[in-house]
């Protein structure tokens, strides 16, 4: 049997591809590039193009980009009017700000809950570590929607928490938890907590125990050791985890829709309303593009500061 590398046919094929500039290397890079092109860049351009159009009652419900006039001249119809509209109407501005606020507060809560959990798992002995990590990811085995519905069962007026507190005699009137911002925070933090824990865990397991002993040996109490050694060294994990929570939380639609009240204003919901209720695709596209910029800008800023820090 010929091995693959000995195969004359194979070598001839490889040479043929190389002649037109395709080598194994380009093929390997091509896959992620193609993915990026098809699933990000093209949709983004389509969205961008729609955001420059005007809503009409037609199919599709927006004006075409190119229009051929009667005399045969081709004109491009595009305007930034939709963006101007977003800027002027306080509804959108408030929705963005409120989304950022809710996402930021949720991220901070997830960080404060997730850090100790990640730290504890990272410091656990090896066999228990695997088990604890499994427990962190276990909720993913049931549907996300089901888990959010389960929270409704907990937070309802007649829900588990209220019944329990009344039974214990802590309160005599049920607390209003459903359809409040609190319920949205609980839902987001609960859902995205594993995304905070996993990168933090990956970072904290790499932390060399000798560094903690060295700090302790040099006169730092365990608390001081944490703030001078553990915390600064886990900063990349904190950044990664916060990104993974903050970014999807900004555009979250399901959780505010199910757990939030009428006052809970989030951009995901505005987007839904524009697309499906108002059928104003151009405005909805503009909303989506602005959201993307809002999310991408801080990432790029963080990335560049991190690169600069590594250069030091």
């Amino acid at each position: 049997m010929n091995r693959l590398s000995d195969n004359a046919l194979w070598r001839a094929t490889a040479r043929g591809f190389a002649a037109i500039g395709i080598t194994g290397r380009t093929l390997v890079i091509a896959i992620p590039m193609l993915w990026f092109l098809v699933f990000f860049l093209v949709p983004f351009l389509v969205l961008g193009r729609i955001s420059l159009a005007e809503a009409i009652i037609a199919r599709p419900p927006y004006t075409p980009l190119f229009e051929r006039a009667a005399d045969g001249t081709l004109s491009i119809i595009a305007s930034l009017e939709n963006y101007w509209f977003l800027w002027q109407d306080t509804l959108y501005r408030n929705a963005y700000l409120s989304s950022i606020r809710i996402a930021a507060i949720s991220t901070i809560c997830a960080l404060f809950i997730g850090y100790p959990i990640a730290y504890f798992i990272a410091r656990s002995p090896e066999p228990r570590r695997t088990f604890l990590l499994l427990m962190v990811v276990l909720p993913f085995w049931t549907s996300f929607l089901l888990r959010v519905y389960a929270w409704m069962g907990f937070l309802r007026r007649e829900g588990v928490i209220n019944n329990m507190l009344i039974w214990l005699g802590v309160i005599d009137q049920p607390l209003v938890m459903m359809q409040t911002d609190l319920a949205v925070y609980i839902g987001i933090v609960y859902t995205y907590l594993p995304f905070m824990i996993l990168p933090l865990y990956a970072n904290l397991t790499k932390l060399d125990g000798a560094l903690l002993e060295a700090a302790n040996d040099l006169g730092a109490s365990p608390v001081v050791t944490f703030f001078t050694v553990t915390l600064p060294l886990s900063l990349p994990g904190i950044v990664a985890g916060s990104m993974l929570v903050f970014i999807p939380a900004i555009g979250e639609y399901v959780i505010p829709a199910l757990l939030g009240g009428p006052d809970t204003l989030m951009i995901g919901r505005v987007l839904w309303d524009e697309f499906f209720s108002s059928r104003d695709w151009p405005v909805a596209s503009a909303v989506a593009i602005v959201m993307l910029v809002l999310v991408v800008a801080p990432i790029m800023w963080l990335q560049s500061t991190q690169d600069r820090r590594e250069l030091d």
Binding site: D208, L211, E213, A214, A215, V229, P232
Partner: peptide, 9 residues
């Protein structure tokens, strides 16, 4: 320490 355990940051 054997590994020196210098603080990398």
């Amino acid at each position: 320490f054997q590994s020196y355990a210098l603080f990398p940051h």
